[in-house]
Simulated assay, not measured.
Amino acid sequence: MTQTILITGCSSGIGRMTAKFFQEKGWNVVATVRSNPETVEELNALDNVLVTALDVTNEETIKSAVAEAVERFGKIDVLLNNAGYGAYGILEATPEKAIRMQFDVNVIGALLVTKNVLPYMRAAGDGTIITISSMGGKVTFPLGSLYHGSKFAVEGMMEALSYELEAIGIKVKLIEPGMINTNFAETTGSMINFDSELAEYGPFVDKALAAMQTAGSQGSAPILVAEAIWQAATEGTDQMRYVAGPDAEQVIAARKALGDAEYLAMMKGQLGL
């Protein structure tokens, strides 16, 4: 029987590429977007793809999308929690709305979608929950207290969840991409929170932004992430974490090998801070 994957955050980037990747492999794909699914023409044109609305911060839309997926394809074999949000900047300058949105999308949103898919997987006695984390769930970079906080939370909650889900036949997987070449510099710049009145931070912010933009321009191709997701969904092993990208492999290995002071000194040196 053809397998089915439900993916959140398919309007662009990793979500859209993964939807196309799985469709090309012969899977049924439920490609969800926050709003206006009819405008996603590229995915709507594909066979065996259901494009529907799902806002991870609104549980009613989650329930509706999951029910629609099961009605259309009969089951959900794999869930990919991909929808994400990234707020970078100086904490003092960050509005409460941005702080709450960071955790509402990346943490609570992933939990709510997982919660609403689980009854169907539990009834089937099988399934795989895959969540996009980041190398930023293992290491930190400047200006990322909110983003890294959310991704560290994703790592912990999904690892903890694996205990109870293993008991009912469901696997839990985490994907840890490095920098991915999806206009990182431009999108990050639009999310930087900085108040000109906080002049003391100015030189640090300038250096950190320059370093991050340089790193972002050297990111890996998004297909690397889709391939890691495919491996996690299909290989049938107990492996939990899949690192995607040479930069992620190097940085995560360094964090494991070094103590706190050594690692932070190394990163500040590399970033010119």
Results as ranks from 00 to 15, higher is better:
3 Q>W: 00
6 L>M: 09
8 T>C: 05
10 C>T: 06
10 C>A: 00
10 C>P: 01
10 C>H: 01
11 S>P: 07
14 I>C: 01
14 I>K: 02
19 A>S: 12
19 A>F: 02
24 E>F: 02
24 E>T: 12
28 N>S: 05
29 V>R: 00
30 V>R: 00
32 T>K: 02
35 S>W: 08
35 S>A: 15
35 S>P: 13
36 N>Q: 14
37 P>R: 07
38 E>Q: 13
41 E>L: 13
42 E>I: 11
45 A>C: 13
48 N>W: 02
51 V>R: 02
53 A>W: 03
53 A>T: 11
56 V>D: 02
56 V>G: 01
57 T>H: 13
58 N>C: 03
60 E>W: 00
63 K>V: 11
64 S>W: 00
66 V>E: 02
70 V>P: 01
74 G>W: 03
80 L>I: 06
81 N>G: 06
82 N>R: 04
85 Y>H: 05
86 G>D: 10
87 A>T: 14
88 Y>F: 06
89 G>M: 03
93 A>P: 07
95 P>W: 03
96 E>S: 09
97 K>Y: 11
98 A>Q: 12
98 A>V: 11
103 F>S: 06
105 V>H: 06
107 V>W: 08
107 V>D: 09
115 K>R: 15
124 A>V: 06
125 G>T: 14
130 I>A: 02
130 I>T: 04
131 T>Q: 06
132 I>D: 02
132 I>M: 07
135 M>E: 08
136 G>M: 08
138 K>W: 10
139 V>K: 10
139 V>T: 15
140 T>Y: 04
142 P>T: 12
142 P>E: 11
142 P>Q: 10
142 P>S: 12
143 L>Q: 03
146 L>G: 04
151 K>I: 00
152 F>D: 05
156 G>K: 12
157 M>T: 14
157 M>V: 15
158 M>F: 04
160 A>D: 15
164 E>L: 12
167 A>S: 15
167 A>Q: 15
172 V>K: 08
175 I>T: 06
184 F>R: 09
187 T>N: 10
187 T>I: 09
187 T>V: 12
188 T>I: 07
190 S>K: 14
193 N>D: 00
196 S>E: 07
207 K>E: 05
208 A>N: 02
211 A>Q: 09
213 Q>K: 13
214 T>S: 14
214 T>I: 15
218 Q>Y: 05
218 Q>T: 13
225 V>E: 01
226 A>I: 04
234 T>G: 04
234 T>Q: 02
235 E>P: 12
239 Q>K: 14
241 R>E: 01
242 Y>R: 09
243 V>T: 05
244 A>R: 01
244 A>M: 06
244 A>T: 04
245 G>N: 03
248 A>Y: 03
253 A>N: 12
256 K>G: 14
257 A>F: 08
260 D>E: 13
261 A>W: 10
262 E>N: 13
263 Y>H: 15
263 Y>D: 14
265 A>P: 11
266 M>W: 06
267 M>Y: 05
268 K>F: 11
270 Q>R: 13
272 G>I: 08
273 L>D: 09
273 L>V: 12
